[in-house]
Design a protein around this nucleic acid. Structure first.
Lengths: 233, 233
DNA sequence: AAGCAAGAAAATATCGATTTTATTTAAGTT
DNA sequence: AACTTAAATAAAATCGATATTTTCTTGCTT
């Protein structure tokens, strides 16, 4: 009874599908057949369709009129745009957070960082495992809660989730960054709590851009410089 | 044959409903009965439901599990948050736009401003008419196109659309601001094209906050200071 | 052999009906 | 009279089936 029973069928499929998507269970750009998914979850097309529509609104899948849905195709161009948007928005919100956050916010950041730092980084068949991802997500969210702006927080979260789709281009990337990442997180947390806004912003910017750089390097090594990248592995 | 025939039924209902919502055709917080809307548009529940789901993703309506959908309820609290988010994001994107926009961007801004300035401000029974709204939307969009960031542009647009829901709290507000608004737009356009980033940002900030201030003043006059505001007139 | 056209197959979008859940109404109890 | 409970009503969520549209296949033409 620990798990939350979703109020509606559609909600459940939406959540499951979302988790699969963010976990890298589908290839970017691949077609999502409604009937197959419906059968797999034991529900009708209507509920799959509703879940898909919601996911499309978040940018995790794309709706192709009269042609169903596909996982959002990835491209270097979009990755660059996404990174730019994330840096701009997450840093702005972090500044606000540092400026306005109180003691409770500090505590939240420290707690979230402690949890993250103590959670082992595991992968299941190349896909990010649950625990670390959850802790990572919570940490980044905690950084922004001081701003006390539900709108900005959810925009930042949505962009971060979108960028998760890119993380699965390569398993190696995740591993390469493992050590750096822990230090980066600690750095961000310390600067934020110390109210060093510009320092924290710089650290967060580097954190975001470093992952993108690694992804770009990997993409280029696979497809050659300047090429659009379709699908992983 | 000038109008675009939507590829799918759902798309059409979505667009129509969206226009109605932004035009202030429904009272904020009011319930949207699926059956009624389906009958009105001559379509099945499925397509209304899909349209609603999309609108919920944009924040124009709210999904209440097992209880259908309602127009997003408005509150002073959310208006303040929304305004803050808009100022933060629109100004950031405007800065980028001014920094990166080329001659073509300048021309677009000037053209959009000219169109806006030459479009009469009409209201149909207290609701914003089509032409001016379209021109206004196009102007604000043009300001941001120089940034060449589809993501940031669409986020800014989405927030601006949300704030349109608030514009219908009072007919008078629209009228009161009429004269100022034209000057404000001219001011923003001139500063942007003159590459005065900080000046343009300041002008845009004032522009956004002025409307909010008027709305808050109206809201308070109707419901008393410090109270949450539910529904208009 | 390559390109095109017609037909078959598959998948989507939409519908109408059923099931489930919420809301209202009415009756019975304290 | 207020409160609770139970039935009736209304609405939403889901389903299974139909109608369209796209995609694939096959055969024909150049």
């Amino acid at each position: 009874m620990t798990a939350i029973e979703p109020k509606t069928h559609s909600e459940g499929v939406y959540a499951s599908l979302r988790a699969e998507l963010l976990g890298g269970a589908f290839l970017p750009g691949s077609k999502l057949r409604l009937a197959g998914i419906g059968t797999r979850y034991g529900v009708s097309l209507s509920v799959v369709r509703e879940a898909m529509t919601r996911l499309a609104g978040e940018g995790l899948v794309r709706a192709l009129p009269q042609r169903g849905f596909c996982v959002t195709p990835l491209s270097v161009e979009d990755l660059l745009d996404l990174t730019r948007a994330r840096v701009l928005i997450e840093t702005s919100v972090l500044r606000e957070s540092i400026g306005q956050g109180g003691l409770e916010w500090e505590s939240e950041v420290i707690a979230a960082h402690h949890t993250l730092q103590g959670t082992p980084y595991t992968t299941h068949e190349g896909h990010l495992g649950g625990d670390w991802s959850v802790a990572h997500h919570a940490f980044h969210r905690a950084l922004l809660t001081g701003a006390k702006s539900p709108r900005l927080e959810s925009i930042a979260t949505e962009l971060r989730d979108c960028s998760l789709l890119y993380q699965h281009w390569s398993i190696e990337i995740a591993h390469d960054l493992d050590r750096d990442v822990a230090a980066e997180h600690r750095n961000i947390a310390e600067l934020a709590v110390a109210r060093d806004a510009e320092g924290a912003v710089k650290a967060l910017t580097d954190h975001i851009e470093r992952t993108t750089a690694a992804l770009l390097a990997y993409a280029e090594s696979k497809t050659g410089p300047g090429r659009a990248v379709g699908i992983s592995a």
